[in-house]
Design a protein around this nucleic acid. Structure first.
Lengths: 140, 140
DNA sequence: TTACCGTCTGAATACCTGTTCAAATATGGG
DNA sequence: CCCATATTTGAACAGGTATTCAGACGGTAA
């Protein structure tokens, strides 16, 4: 009757491959038996693509050791680019590139003073988040 | 007297380029004037390289939209791989690969039941962290 | 056992990310 | 104005990452 092939004593349902966001046409053959009721229950709560992307970009900004070092330095006090470079032992250009990433996610704020640009943590949330994850990792 | 070139009314100090972890020999010429006292103050508090890497790997596991979708689904209930694939609309192989990443950071736990493997969030911390970041992003 | 289903793995490809070098921009001083 | 300093930017290269396909593994049922 319908295109779903459900066996009688279970809620498993054969589902054609779904490949929606991408330009791939779905092949007619099915891949696996899914528990349709579970999927239906969960699916509306799944993070939307735009939100997932925004969140991923945020975490992505935190997913580099050098950037985390920069943040840990800035958690102490405001610093200009060349000081940061010395503190984390990176080239100044590299630091500038990384600060750009941190800026794009509003993890840091900055102000110009003379020829120097001083950076600092944008938000107390950041320090909190940082500490939470550090603790979490120390636990395990 | 010493190799440092400090001007009289400031704490700025010329520093040879420091390039320690990598096999690059430092050029004799300096790059920038740093505020040596600031650097000295901050440097010991900078995240150590191993810790920074461990933390970066953790965030890295959270830095992909598909993985975040998987986690948001698992925040609802335990699901097997094929259900997850249907819920987030990915191929099952891709899901398996991503679950491997989540497993490697202990973000999910799993158990086998018959032919299915059921995944769930490893920890309440994860859900908390997830919600904090979601809220933080909604604020801005 | 044989056949099958669900999941995992490995290799290949395409994409994204970080570093470096060189050069541009911006500020301040002589 | 011209020069030196501080930071940013862009291009090029190297290394890492995600998806796909094909096949392997493990468990189940006939």
């Amino acid at each position: 009757m319908d295109t779903l092939v459900a066996d009688s004593h279970s809620t498993k349902t054969q589902l054609a491959q779904i490949q929606p966001d991408r330009g791939v046409e779905a092949p007619a053959c099915a891949e696996s038996l899914v528990h349709l009721d579970n999927v239906r229950q969960v699916q509306p709560e799944v993070l939307s693509t735009p939100k997932a992307q925004r969140m991923a970009e945020f975490f992505s900004a935190l997913s580099d050791p050098h950037r985390l070092k920069l943040l840990s330095a800035l958690a102490q006090q405001e610093l200009c680019v060349c000081d940061l470079a010395a503190a984390v032992k990176m080239g100044e250009s590299a630091v500038s590139h990384q600060l750009r990433v941190l800026r794009s996610q509003r993890l840091v704020k900055y102000r110009r003073q003379g020829r120097n640009v001083y950076y600092g943590l944008a938000d107390n949330h950041i320090a909190t988040l940082y500490r939470e994850v550090a603790d979490h990792l120390d636990e395990g």
